[in-house]
C-alpha cells in the first residue's frame, strides 16, 4: 500500500505540470473561422484563443482533436491542445456546421521552421507569441 500511495502522490503532482505554450488566435465572424487553415507546430503544447465576434454562441468541435468548447457571443475562450502529431485536424462550429469549418495543420519541426521563415519573409502577422 505504501508503494501505491507514493505512486498516487507522483500522479497528483505530475498532473499539474505547467509549461509555456505558444498562443494562436482563431476568430469567428459571420459564422466563419479566420484563418480557416490554422498552422501550428507539432510536438508541443499550444493554446488557441477563440474570439467570437458574432452575437450568438458557437461550439468549437473536433473529433480528431477531442475537443468541444462553447464560446458565448462577443466573448473569448481558450482551447488547450497538444502535443499534436504532424497532420491535419478538421474542426467546425457545431451550431453553424455548414459555414463554420476549418482545419488545423500541425507541422513537424523542420516544416514549422520553414513555415515561420516564409511568414517572416511575407511580413505576415500570424507569428505567435509565448506566454
Amino acid at each position: 500500500m505504501r508503494v501505491s500511495r507514493q505512486y498516487l502522490w507522483l500522479l497528483l503532482l505530475g498532473s499539474f505540470a505547467l509549461s509555456a505554450r505558444q498562443e494562436f488566435s482563431l476568430k469567428l465572424k459571420d459564422h466563419l473561422f479566420s484563418p480557416a487553415r490554422l498552422t501550428v507546430p507539432a510536438g508541443e503544447k499550444i493554446k488557441i484563443r477563440l474570439i467570437n465576434q458574432d452575437d450568438t454562441p458557437e461550439e468549437f468541435e473536433s473529433f480528431s482533436l477531442n475537443r468541444e468548447k462553447v464560446v458565448l457571443g462577443q466573448s473569448q475562450a481558450v482551447i488547450y491542445l497538444g502535443p499534436l502529431q504532424p497532420g491535419e485536424y478538421p474542426f467546425f462550429g457545431d451550431f453553424h456546421p455548414d459555414s463554420a469549418k476549418g482545419v488545423l495543420i500541425a507541422l513537424a519541426d523542420a516544416q514549422w521552421r520553414a513555415h515561420q521563415q516564409q511568414q517572416t519573409e511575407n511580413n505576415e502577422t500570424e507569428t505567435p507569441h509565448v506566454d
Partner: peptide, 10 residues
Amino acid sequence: TEQGQYNWDW
C-alpha cells in the same frame, strides 16, 4: 481545469 490545460484534466 480546462481540457488539456494540465497533464491531467480534473
